[in-house]
Design a protein around this nucleic acid. Sequence first.
RNA 1: GGAGGGAUGGCCGAGCGGACGAAGGCGGUUGUCUUGAAAACAACUGUGGCAGCAAUGUCACCGGGGGUUCGAAUCCCUCUCCCUCCGCCA
Length: 425
Amino acid sequence: MLDIRWMREHRAELAAAMAKLNDTEAPWEKALELDERRRAILTRVEALRAERNSGSKEVGRLYQAGQRSEADALKARMASIGDEIAQLDAELREVEAAFNDAMLRIPNPPDPEAPVAPDESGNRVVLEVGTRPSFAFTPLAHWDLGEKLGIIDVERGAKLAGSRFYVLRGAGALLQRALANYFLDVHTTEHGYEEVYPPFMVRGECMVGTGNLPKFGDNLYRDVEEDYWFIPTAEVPVTNLHRDEILAASDLPRYYVAHTPCFRREKLSAGKDVRGIKRVHQFEKVEMVKFVAPEHGRAELESLVANAEVLVARLGLPYRRVLIATGDLSFVACLKYDIEVWAAGCQEWLEISSCSWFRDFQARRANIRYRTAEGKIEYVHTLNGSGLALPRIIIAILENYQQPDGTVVVPEVLRPYMGGRSVIG
RNA sequence: GGAGGGAUGGCCGAGCGGACGAAGGCGGUUGUCUUGAAAACAACUGUGGCAGCAAUGUCACCGGGGGUUCGAAUCCCUCUCCCUCCGCCA
């Protein structure tokens, strides 16, 4: 959410920022209009309230002084003011509801550093590390490899839950567990993150806080009976950890890491990426979330992306860092890097991490503030990034480390997490 | 799932229709005293909206929402959460 006062005073700047996004429905003009109406009603209703407050006090005083008839007359006058207030209140409630809804549907303006382009064609590769493996044979894609090795069972996943579900078996399940443990260990022991185990279902307010609601409810699973929403990423519960809190300056920066399943409806992508486990309804991810003082927001994005990249590097996978263009930015991010890993089988760069800086956009929605050293209360900055998404890393390991005999070599760093195992198959 | 009891400021806790943004205590900040610290004493110490260059004024907030009333922390309805007992369950 944006600061309405900032919006009022920087209309042109706001318009220019919104034009850089590919969101033509952003109701920022509507919000400004509703804000005018809201304030007009507010000043009227508050003047009436002030009058009623002092009048009501006077009624009490008159009764105590025994001046009944004066009191009754004043009481009648206050009653009619009350009616007027009730009427304006109803109007105000309506306008305010519309205003709030509009505010929640305005995306975060992009940072000036983001390349300006209408879509992903403007994304900029800023770093490429490692060399893509070459093979003396034709490398298999993970869906074939996984099936042959008996470690990815897409067919039975579909039997249990439908398309875009899968079963990891044996060494496949072990590999995922090893990855999660390895990632968590690195983040907690080397990068200063606190591990948390949050609920995987949350209330709607949490989804509003991170920006998933009201606009993107279509992508979420939900238990209507209990009004629980299934998290699409650990970002949701972890960011909301400090919702409605005022942190001390000494609490910042705060780094959290969580390993959770992620549930996504992926409704709009039917027909795309159907094979294998690249795009599925349920997957595991290790997620990093940061709460920081505003002056460190930008720098914290760099360390965040570095925290994710070191994992890819240590797994020996070729990867690149992509700076996302304005038209490809998510609703909440003002600046974002994607990390993509090369998958030799399907011959694709796969996004395995998205590292975003939100400025105070989420903090305003979730009301997360801190008290500065000077005692002022300000919104924190939030950031988050995957570190890392597991199925796609499994894909990359299988496809890049495959051998002529159909086996897969286990990256060195994972072997201690897999009982010393060095080969799958 | 059934029965009961609760929710008040950073924390504890009073208030149960007007003088209450809210007693008192703890904590915090500042000052006096002290070589320094402690103690004691004194003052200050919630969040947000609106108007204003500002000083300031004004409105709202006592778990959330709605209602009764001239007037609600206080009365009524409803929801959420917490606690106790019973049932069920890994």
